[in-house]
């Protein structure tokens, strides 16, 4: 009896060709949506901006991630730059020191395949000919960011000092120079000596006869090469390079340096806007003398 019922049931459930087609399409679309969401969730996580130092001339991180084709030619150029290879007497390359730039591998927990460097391991040595940038096929390393017009030269000239790979930050709590111990390792290591890092002299009130030699980083000159971070004598470096996105704040556009003629020019195109609140409807004096509202307070 039961068996018969089941047989009948199966007959009823047979589906028509049209329904079969519809279900097949729905299935495909459904699986596509499922896969698409898992895929996008993964990609969105891995591209979330991480604290990572990029080669000189790199575009801003979001543009860099969409433009870099992950070919590794900058890494190759960095590895086999003239200043990094060992040669035998015939001039053949016999080997090369580890390069500054590396490509992010699975497991590095960085956007995969993109070039980066860890300053404490191998910093950027700021080569004058910047071998890593001209080889970039995609423009993710933008040559215009590290070259400038020079008088009498028809083509812009490469200038590594224009690079903005990051900014060195001093941890004044753990820097031993701020304790009063004499150390100028970062100051001496800086390739833009006495500009990107200066030493500020202060009297050491504790001893009364010594000076503090405090390193101060100047963001307009610092390229973020990381030589200071490598040179730092503390166990974990007390001076370290962070990407500009993390190292710098940003003042609102309504702050203007009135003493700076160039900054003052921004006022030329400024437009004003007056907002009226209940208090500012009347003059300040009126509103302060308004006893009615004052009584409301009690």
């Amino acid at each position: 009896m039961n068996n018969n019922n089941q047989k009948q049931k199966i007959k009823i459930e047979k589906i028509s060709e049209g329904r079969r087609k519809f279900l097949n399409i729905t299935k495909s679309v459904g699986i596509a949506v499922l896969g698409g969401f898992i895929w996008s969730a993964y990609v969105d996580e891995v591209k979330a901006s991480s604290i990572v130092l990029r080669p000189p001339g790199a575009l801003d991180e979001p543009d860099f991630l969409k433009t870099c084709i992950k070919c590794g030619m900058c890494v190759q150029a960095c590895h086999f730059r003239d200043s990094n290879v060992m040669k035998n007497n015939d001039g053949d390359i016999t080997g090369a020191r580890p390069p500054t730039l590396k490509l992010a591998k699975p497991g590095d927990n960085l956007p995969i395949g993109t070039p980066f460097f860890i300053a404490r391991d191998v910093p950027c040595f700021m080569c004058d000919d910047i071998p890593c940038v001209p080889v970039c096929p995609s423009g993710a390393l933008d040559i215009t960011k590290v070259s400038r017009k020079v008088e009498k030269e028809p083509e812009p000239v490469l200038d590594i000092n224009m690079a903005k790979m990051g900014l060195a930050i001093v941890d004044t709590t753990n820097c031993i120079a701020f304790w009063g111990i004499q150390c100028d390792a970062c100051y001496r290591a800086c390739p833009i000596l006495d500009k990107a890092i200066t030493l500020e002299y202060k009297k050491n009130e504790r001893t009364g006869k010594h000076a503090y030699l405090e390193p101060v980083v100047h963001s307009e000159f610092c390229t973020g090469c990381g030589l200071c971070e490598l040179a730092c004598v503390t166990d974990k470096p007390a001076i370290f390079v962070l990407p500009l996105e993390y190292a710098l704040g940003k003042a609102g556009s309504h702050y203007i340096k009135g003493w700076d003629a160039k900054d003052e020019e921004r006022l030329k195109n400024a437009h004003s806007e007056t907002t009226t609140t209940k208090i500012s409807e009347k003059s300040a004096l009126d509103s302060l003398n308004n006893m009615d509202e004052l009584e409301d307070l009690y």
Binding site: M73, Q76, I93, G113
Partner: peptide
């Protein structure tokens, strides 16, 4: 990348 040859530089995404 290992010996500095320049026949084929880069990888399958982009190369010279």
């Amino acid at each position: 990348n290992a010996y500095g040859w320049s026949i084929l530089v880069g990888n399958l995404s982009s190369s010279t």
